[in-house]
Amino acid sequence: MKDWWKIIVAAIFEVGWVIGLKHADGVLEWLGTAAAIYVSFYLLIVAGRTLPVGTAYAVFVGLGAAGTVIAEIILFGAQVNPAKLALIAVLLAGVIGLKLVTDEGGDEEWHGSH
């Protein structure tokens, strides 16, 4: 479970660096963006050592994308689009589903024939 937490924290840092890429103006903001990129990918790489890398990456990107959309709405007053929010919910359902069918040892659990 601790590796899934690494993915969640990595996704939070992903939101930070994606926002930084768009809004950074000064040296400190760019340094913060670079630090967020480093932490984000470091945690993803470490978690990928025990989790299936494809699943870990999909969860990382899905959470990052959802978090970025939500952050744009909350922090920058982006327009709330009900269709976009519904699609984010579908994305998050997929992320949760991936987590539920993946065990800690990196093996996919398939219900049915292989």
Rank of each mutant, 00 (worst) to 15 (best):
A65W: 02
A56P: 06
F41I: 15
P82C: 06
H23G: 05
A11F: 10
A71W: 06
I73W: 11
Y57C: 10
V59N: 04
L44E: 00
F13T: 13
F76D: 09
A10K: 14
P82W: 15
G77R: 15
R49N: 07
A56C: 15
V18S: 01
P82R: 09
A47L: 12
D3G: 02
L44Q: 01
W17D: 00
T33V: 05
V59Q: 13
L75I: 04
I37S: 03
I12P: 01
I19M: 11
L44K: 00
I12D: 02
A24T: 03
P82F: 09
Q79S: 08
G20W: 07
A36T: 08
G62C: 13
K84R: 15
L21A: 11
I7C: 01
T55N: 04
A83G: 08
A11I: 06
A10V: 10
K6W: 10
L44T: 00
T50E: 06
V53A: 07
F41K: 07
V101F: 10
R49I: 04
G67E: 08
A11P: 05
G77Q: 07
S40G: 03
W4G: 14
G32P: 02
D25Y: 12
G32W: 04
W30Q: 07
L63H: 01
L43V: 04
V59I: 14
A66H: 10
V90E: 07
K6P: 01
L91G: 15
L91E: 13
V15G: 07
I73T: 10
L85K: 09
G97R: 05
A86D: 07
P82S: 13
L92W: 13
T68I: 01
A66Y: 08
E29T: 15
A71F: 14
G16L: 09
A35G: 11
A58M: 06
G32D: 05
V61H: 02
D25A: 11
I73P: 11
L98R: 05
I12V: 12
I88P: 03
V95S: 06
Y38P: 00
V15L: 08
L75H: 03
W17Y: 10
L85M: 09
V61P: 00
K22E: 12
G54E: 07
G64I: 09
A24Q: 10
K84Y: 04
V39R: 02
G94I: 02
V27R: 12
L100A: 14
V18L: 02
V9Y: 11
V69T: 14
